Computed example of a mutant assay.
Amino acid sequence: MNTTGTTGRAERESRRWGPRGTAGATFAGLLAFENVSKQFGKTEVVRDVSFSLAPGEIACLLGPSGCGKTTLLRIAAGIEKPDRGRVLFDGQEMAGPNRFVPPEKRNIGLMFQDFALFPHLSILENVAFGLKNLPRAEARTIAGHALERVGLAHHAADYPHHLSGGEQQRVALARALVPRPQVMLMDEPFSGLDQRLRESVRAETLTLLRETRASCLLVTHDPVEAMGLADRIFLMRQGRLVQSGTPEQIYRQPADAAVARFFSDANELAGPVTGGRVETPLGGFPVPAGFHGREALVLIRPQGLKPGGAGTDGLVVEARFQGDDVKCSVLFKGVDERLTALVHAREAPQRGQTARFEIDPEHVFVFEKPVSPPIS
C-alpha cells in the first residue's frame, strides 16, 4: 500500500492547522496606520489617526457608537479607502496616495458582527470557503481540523440555521482563521450573544488567537470586553485617538475625565485648588503636575469609598445587595448629590445607618474643571 501521498498531505495539514486539538501558528503581521483620515459627505469620521499593531498582538479599538472605530477597521480591510494617510502591512503600503491593494490581495481575516455564514453551504463548506487555492479534498480536510478545534466537528454536515448563535460564531472564527491570515480584523464579534455565552465564547476566541499568533484588531464598545481581551487598547472619541495603552494603564491613568467615566461609574466633586491640592467636603487631594486651573474636578470610583478608617461620616440612604457587593447611596455633609459606594457585602453598612467612609487614593482622579461656556 502506497502511503507517501497520504503522509505528505497530513504533514501539510499539520503545518497549516496544527496537530489535532491545537490551532496552527501563522506569521503575524505588523499593521500600521499613519495619519489616516476619512470623510463621508461633510462629516469627518476619522481624523488623523496613527498607531501600529505589533506582530502577534491582540488590540481593541474601543469607543462609543459613531466614534470611527468600525470605519478604521474597514479601511484596514480595504473595504474603504482613506482620504488621507496610509495603511501599511509589514512596511508595505496597502492604502495611501501611491497604492491601493484590494481586500482579496491582503492577507487578512475578517469576522463581522452577523458572522456572514453562507446559508446554502454546510458548516464544513463554509469553513473551507477561504481555501479555494487548495485541492477540494485537502481544503475539506483542513476545514475539518478547524471544526474539530472549535468543538464542532459533529456539525460538519449541518447548515448554519441548525446552529445556535454561539456555535455560528465559532464557525465564523474557524473560517476566518483557516487561511492563516497575518492580521485578523473583528467587528463587534460577540455583541449578538447573551451575557453568559459571550464570556465563554470570548475566552475560547482568545485561546485560539493566542495559538494561531495572528495579529488581531478587534472593535468593541464594551470596556470590560476590551480589558479582558486586549494586550493594548486604542480608545477613540469623535474620530480621534484619545488614548492608547495596556488595559491597566488606561484604567489607572485615564487621560481625561471622559476616559475615566467610560471605564467606570464615578462620583464627581469639584473644589478650589490651593497649595497644590483641591479641597472638597470629603477632604483634600493632590492635583497632578502641570495643573493650571483654579478649580479641579475630582472623580472617585464607587469602589474607592470604603467603610471605616479616619474618613468622613455619611448617611446610608440606600443599600442594594448585589451578591458579593452591596451598592450604597450615601449622603455626605456639604455634598448636594448622593454618592455611590460599592462595598464588600461583609463590610456593608445598613440602610439608615451613619457610617464613616475613607477614600482609596488609587480610585481618585483629579482633572482641570472645564470652563462653562458663556450664556448668550
Rank of each mutant, 00 (worst) to 15 (best):
M1V: 10
T6N: 08
T6W: 00
T7K: 08
S14D: 14
R15L: 10
R16T: 08
G21C: 11
G29Y: 01
K38Y: 06
G41Y: 02
V45N: 12
S52W: 00
A54W: 01
L62P: 10
G63Q: 02
P64W: 00
K69G: 14
A76Y: 02
I79K: 08
E80V: 04
E80P: 07
D83C: 07
D83W: 02
N98L: 07
R99E: 13
P103T: 13
E104F: 05
R106F: 02
N107T: 02
G109C: 11
G109M: 08
M111W: 02
Q113F: 04
A116R: 10
H120G: 08
E125W: 01
N126R: 03
G130R: 07
T141C: 10
A146Y: 04
A157C: 03
Y159V: 04
H162E: 14
H162C: 11
G165K: 04
G166D: 13
Q168M: 13
R170N: 12
V171W: 03
L173A: 11
A176V: 06
L185Y: 11
D187C: 07
D187F: 03
P189G: 10
F190Y: 07
L193T: 06
R198Q: 05
S200K: 05
L206S: 13
A214S: 15
P223K: 05
M227A: 11
A230Q: 08
F234T: 00
M236W: 00
R237T: 00
G239Q: 04
G239C: 05
L241Q: 02
Q243T: 04
G245W: 01
Q249K: 07
R261G: 05
F263L: 14
S264V: 02
S264C: 05
L269H: 13
V278W: 01
E279S: 14
P281K: 02
H292R: 13
G293Y: 00
R294F: 00
E295G: 01
V298Q: 07
I300D: 09
I300M: 08
P307V: 03
G308S: 12
T312E: 06
D313R: 09
G323F: 01
C328E: 12
V330K: 04
K333S: 13
H344E: 09
A348I: 08
A348F: 04
F357N: 12
V364M: 09
E368T: 09
I375E: 15
